[in-house]
Every structure is written in structure tokens, then in C-alpha cells.
């Protein structure tokens, strides 16, 4: 069991160390997020009233789309450099590799939110960094990254991979988007916990179900 966690830790450390040295994925994700915030501001031609009701939607759309970018890079890079075979040859449980890949992608996606949330708060002129909004982001991106890691392992091994990941991932992420927007939007509007609890339950349900499914079928995706 201890060895299992060591494998997960090693994969996470490897990915994050590589990312810290190159910073190419995170910086691309952050720039992309900023551009999306800008695009939304122009497209929705925001006035103060519209801003408050759309802030949660903009936050989530930005998180999901920039997340797709990071997920595409995560396993795509391994596939390009042929290092995926190396990883798979390691005498380790495949599910440990999955969890390692999942955690490193999740950390990157959350790191991007650390930049996006304050910037959105400044641009929209009201504080998005509220505990419930952050909880909703953490829970929502968890499930999203869980499915995303599995599906990026699928799309990385196909011909049309950069195009394919969003096509596969976004329709199965509708519950995350719905529950995320509703819970964080409700929290921003000052709704009580009793109203919001159902959305958080939905996020947790999604996370549990899809992490379990992803772990179970990951072997079938990477094992030849």
C-alpha cells in the first residue's frame, strides 16, 4: 500500500517538476483563460447587472475550456515523446499511474484558477473568492479532471486527438457544468446552504462515480 502511494507521488512529482522547468502548459492555460475572460466580456457586453448573473458561467466555461487544453497536453506529450511506454513498463499498478496523472492535471487546473479567480474578481469588481465558490470549483474540476484524464489517454492514441478530446469530454461533463454554475452562482447570489446543498451533492456523486469508472477502465485504455 505504501509502495502504491509512492508510485502516485513519483508520477505527480515527475509531471510537476517537468512543468515547473518548462512552464509551457500552465502558462498556455493561463493566457488562454485570460483571453476567454476577455472574449466573454466583449461578447456579453457586460454591464454591472449582467456581470453578477453571468460571473459563475464565465468562471466555469473558462475553467472547463482551459482545462481541456491542459488535459490534452498531459498525456499527449507522453505519447509524442514515447515516454508513455516507459511509464507503462514500470512495475507499478496501472491505477496508480492513473491517479498520478489525474492528480498532476488537477493541480495544474487548480493553479490556473488561482490566477483566473482574482483576475475575474478585479475585472467584474466583486469578490469571487468566496469559500463556497472555491469548494464548487475544487469539487467540479475534480470530476472533470477524472474523466478528462481517462479520455485524454483515449484521444492521445487516436489520429484526431486535439480535436477529439473536447468532443468526447464536454458532453459527458454537462452535469459538472450545471452543478458548478448553479452552486457557485447561488453562492454569489447569497443563497443559503440548504438551497445549494443539492448541487454540491450532485458534484460529489459525479466525482465518486466517474473516478471509480475511470480507475476501472484505465487499464483497458493504456494496456496493450
Amino acid at each position: 500500500m505504501k509502495r502504491y502511494f509512492k508510485v502516485i507521488g513519483a508520477v505527480v512529482w515527475k509531471d510537476l517538476a517537468a512543468e515547473l522547468r518548462s512552464r509551457e502548459t500552465v502558462s498556455a492555460m493561463i493566457v488562454f483563460s485570460m483571453l476567454m475572460v476577455l472574449v466573454f466580456s466583449i461578447a456579453l457586453e457586460l454591464n454591472r447587472g449582467a456581470r453578477e448573473s453571468t460571473a459563475a458561467g464565465v468562471l466555469w466555461a473558462t475553467a472547463l475550456f482551459s482545462g481541456t487544453l491542459g488535459l490534452n497536453r498531459g498525456l499527449g506529450r507522453e505519447q509524442d515523446r514515447g515516454t508513455l511506454e516507459g511509464l507503462l513498463l514500470a512495475p507499478a499498478d496501472r491505477s496508480a499511474l492513473y491517479f498520478g496523472k489525474f492528480l498532476s492535471s488537477w493541480v495544474l487546473i487548480l493553479a490556473v484558477q488561482v490566477v483566473t479567480v482574482p483576475v475575474l474578481s478585479v475585472l467584474y469588481n466583486f469578490n469571487l473568492a468566496q469559500p463556497l465558490v472555491l469548494l464548487s470549483l475544487i469539487l467540479g474540476t475534480l470530476g472533470y479532471t477524472g474523466v478528462g484524464t481517462l479520455l485524454s489517454a483515449v484521444s492521445a492514441q487516436t489520429r484526431a486527438r486535439d480535436v477529439l478530446l473536447p468532443i468526447l469530454l464536454l458532453p459527458v461533463s454537462v452535469p459538472v457544468l450545471m452543478a458548478g454554475v448553479q452552486s457557485s452562482g447561488g453562492a454569489l447570489a447569497g443563497e443559503p446552504w440548504s438551497e445549494l446543498m443539492i448541487w454540491f451533492s450532485l458534484l460529489v456523486t459525479y466525482d465518486v462515480i466517474f473516478l471509480a469508472v475511470a480507475v476501472m477502465v484505465f487499464e483497458a485504455v493504456v494496456g496493450e
Binding site: L150, L151, V154, L168, P171, V172, V174, F210, V213
Partner: peptide, 8 residues
């Protein structure tokens, strides 16, 4: 994908 999609 048939499994993941259907569960969602």
C-alpha cells in the same frame, strides 16, 4: 466511451 457516455 460507450460505458462512460451512458453513465453520464
Amino acid at each position: 466511451y460507450g460505458v462512460v457516455g451512458f453513465i453520464s
